[in-house]
Design a protein around this nucleic acid. Structure first.
Lengths: 130, 130
DNA sequence: TATGTTGTATTAAAGTATTAGTACAATATA
DNA sequence: TATATTGTACTAATACTTTAATACAACATA
């Protein structure tokens, strides 16, 4: 029997890092999206359940989810839950292209300003997504 | 007579940006290194002179210089001044890696939230950078 | 050595960020 | 409709960040 890789989404807090709890939650969601453990439409833990398992206040989880919503990464509905946003279905091709340009342009120009080459960016993207 | 490009190092503050003054100074030094206006061994303005020209407290400039020293970007000597570190023409590798990660992570998770695949991103980057 | 230059240390004020406690509101569903 | 589930609003306590005022210390050099 082949060993299975555990791809379950687990949250944890580094209590000593000095990084605010809500930011740690944001980072963990982002990383899970980046490496594929979370996909469009997936539900995140409820603010209460995650608060219990992390032993923090529900508002702190809610704050993380709120920031993610502002950034367009999740959608939230009271009474239902918080979900990785699923915008790709709704958008026409032209619109997607425009959005991709608007996301990419500042990334590229910022990275270039710091002297990074296209090859470095691609390599970095691949290793993060890998 | 050919027009000359002014490569003088000028500091300025955006008072409304909400970005702390000392961070603005750090960014401006970093950018000047990246695009070659500052090179190995170049002296930065003294904390006092820059403080006067930016109309802020010398300690605020000193704080920026201190952070730059911690990051290995400048060397400081009391009585003499603050200089771009001799050893590194560009930013230290760790620093570059940190910056690249901070640029890439939000780009990637945003793009993923829109349903874009890694391949699409890379293709788009290549065509924009073309 | 005396003086002026450079950065540094200490402290305090003001603002901002972070978190939790408590109560509330919207939605789903039995 | 009643109830449980979901996120939200408001508030207050605490800690951290940012900046400046003032005084100090190290160094260069006349």
């Amino acid at each position: 029997m082949a060993a299975e890789v555990d791809t379950t989404l687990r949250f944890s807090l580094d209590l000593k890092s000095g990084v605010p709890y809500y930011k740690q939650v944001i980072l963990q969601v982002e990383m899970a999206i980046v490496d594929g453990r979370l996909e469009n439409g997936d539900q995140l833990p409820t603010v209460r359940s995650l608060a219990v398992s992390l032993k923090i206040n529900p508002n702190t989880v809610a704050r993380a989810y709120n920031e993610l919503e502002i950034r367009g990464i999740v959608n939230t509905q009271q009474g239902t839950g918080t979900f990785i946003s699923d915008k790709k279905i709704e958008l026409p091709e032209v619109e997607k292209e425009r959005i991709l340009s608007e996301l990419t342009r500042p990334y590229l120009s910022n990275a270039r300003a710091y002297g990074f080459t296209l090859e470095e960016l691609i390599k970095h993207l691949q290793s993060m997504a890998g």
